[in-house]
Write a protein that binds this DNA or RNA. Structure first.
Lengths: 341, 341
DNA sequence: CTGCGTTCCGGAATCGATACCATGTGCGTC
DNA sequence: GACGCACATGGTATCGATTCCGGAACGCAG
């Protein structure tokens, strides 16, 4: 910048004013400065700019694992919106380790990120909550319920409506022994379970017929749960997956055992990822607009960065049930013998 | 930091020395400083640190589209390795727009990234090449051939060996009319085509029997190409996909038309993503270790950051063919009539 | 002609850290 | 006893920008 000033024969402050659009700049000055900038190919140093003006123009994204297609799309939605607003994204993966969540949050704080979007592994890991509560920059939490001392806006999905539609469909088709395989104890998992339970109530059926297997959002858990569920004398007639990874694991088992979806057993998947559309028969799923989740999170964050005093907001995005051939009528009672081992 | 110094009753320089592990620090001093740091919960400002020490401890990743599972895993591999070395990752998506590639590179340069890993949309977009050539920080290029004036280390896959194994398998099963659907004209696309062509030479067969359809790495291109290929009187007996997105598109068409893979037509996919393992029958693929690509890129970059004078290096990672049921014997001549329209 | 306001520009402090240089102290050596 | 050296420490310039403040130049009214 000093070089530009020397070349144009002006002071550094004038260069700064010109480039930042300050009104106290004459046309003659602007011409000379811009010419010098052009000739030298000068580009301001964003680090120094950030230090002085107390705004790094970067935001942190704390994600569980970017190789999960759900997260990848959320991240992409957020990154595009942030870049259009002039912000860069610092991405961290926590690899399903809540301690890494915490360390990543603190690291991004040290980097003076102007805000953060977090998709936490756990809702109850105290050091992580503490780190979030201590944050001085705007925060957007995605798909999680956190204690009130964490001041943050939130982007949530209305898992309830989509899941209830799916469960009602199963009920209409005669299913009562339904299995729900969920992940960690976080908001989407809880909401989905409650949604299915409330459909049992709606139909005046005993909730004890619902089998819930909660673990982690992983293929392995899907595999293990599906095996357990099918390895009993009286397996459920319908199964619901509570994450796309769990869905993939469950489908592996179902495929291996040669079960025909929609006939031997019905299946409702989670998130309309490629697998769901390519599997034969096609998989009915509860879907949500994943790109929109990321975009909304970015927009919320940007609005809070512009107006730090604005009150935290919550945005509830809809989910919707897409019925496909994997969901069929419940077989007559006593189908256990037909299930290959 | 001044607060810490005041509290401990020492100079800022002493605080700095203590925290950076400088040898000229007495035990007494260390105690006092660390105590003050603890009491105040002080954490150094990485922006200021970066400005002064000329190292931002961050690296840029320029990716085409993170929602592609291939990229997601590469990014994840890189992020983990970088974080372990104390670096943060600035992620940008270029959404298949070479101009965005260029702008992202320049942006990351302004942010004073200590290095960059790039997975470019195009190998020939001149402004992008110029931007890369003008870079003063270490650069690692993934899966691309670039002009020599771009000084960079590279991480490449040996697509040739994996693809030749797949093509030989098809030949052994009697296939001669083979279709290869590729993406943009970049290294992996070219290498795969050359590999298949050389297998034709090996078997003394006329290369004109090979049908090549190159376009972009997208589901849509896979769909369009598959339709074209199947809509002729004499369709190929085997098809090879040159990207996971293309594979998904092609499989959609194949599924829609009710074709049985391995019997009606043989199919070799690309990258062993979940779809390949869940599709029935299972899809034979040419695979590579995606996490390792990212990790290797990060390691190369880190080594160049530590030793800026080191010569650029190239790492060739292997690919391997995984035969599965989607690859079967070629039907007898004249099967066109059996293909449903 | 003087006084005052407007416009525009340069100088210097500042953001939060690092690193060089100078200073002060204690100790061994001749 | 004087000198030199090692070790610790404080002061200050610096990284590359922004921003406040003071002042020059000019116009215009009293």
């Amino acid at each position: 910048m000093r070089e530009v000033a020397d070349r144009a024969g002006v002071a550094m402050s004038s260069v700064s004013r010109t480039l930042s659009g300050h009104p106290d700049v004459s046309d003659a000055m602007r011409q000379r400065v811009l010419a010098a900038v052009d000739e030298l190919g000068y580009k301001p140093d964003l680090l120094a700019q950030g230090l002085r003006s107390r705004a790094s123009l970067s935001v942190g994204f704390v994600a569980g694992d970017i190789s999960n297609p759900l997260l990848a799309q959320i991240v992409r939605g957020a990154e595009v919106a942030l870049r259009e607003a002039g912000y860069s994204m610092l991405l961290t993966n926590s690899l399903v380790d809540p301690e890494l969540d915490q360390r990543n949050i603190e690291l991004l704080e040290q980097r003076r990120a102007d805000g953060m979007i977090v998709l936490l592994v756990s809702e109850s890991h105290v050091p992580t909550i503490d780190a979030l509560a201590g944050l001085e920059v705007p925060l957007v939490v995605v798909e999680r319920d956190l204690p009130a001392r964490v001041r943050a806006s939130r982007v949530l999905s209305d898992h309830r409506s989509g899941m209830m539609a799916a469960a009602r469909h199963l009920f209409e088709l005669g299913h009562r022994r339904i299995a729900l395989v969920g992940g960690q104890d976080v908001r989407p998992t809880r909401t989905r379970r409650e949604a299915v339970e409330s459909v049992y109530d709606e139909y005046g059926e005993d909730r004890s017929q619902l089998v819930v297997r909660e673990g982690v959002f992983s293929i392995d858990h899907g595999v293990a749960a599906a095996r357990e569920l099918l390895d009993v004398p009286d397996p459920p007639t319908a199964m619901i997956a509570g994450s796309n990874q769990i869905m993939i694991g469950m489908l592996q088992v179902i495929t291996d055992r040669g079960l025909e979806l929609g006939r031997d057993v019905s299946f409702v998947g989670c998130d309309d990822i490629d697998v769901a559309k390519l599997y034969r028969p096609h998989i009915g799923v509860v879907d949500r607009d994943r790109i929109a989740i990321g975009r909304t999170a970015a927009e919320l964050l940007l609005s809070h960065i512009q107006d730090p005093d604005a009150l935290p907001r919550e945005v509830l995005l809809s989910t919707y049930y897409i019925p496909r051939e994997s969901v069929g009528p419940a077989p007559g009672e006593r189908v256990a013998g037909r299930v290959p081992v």
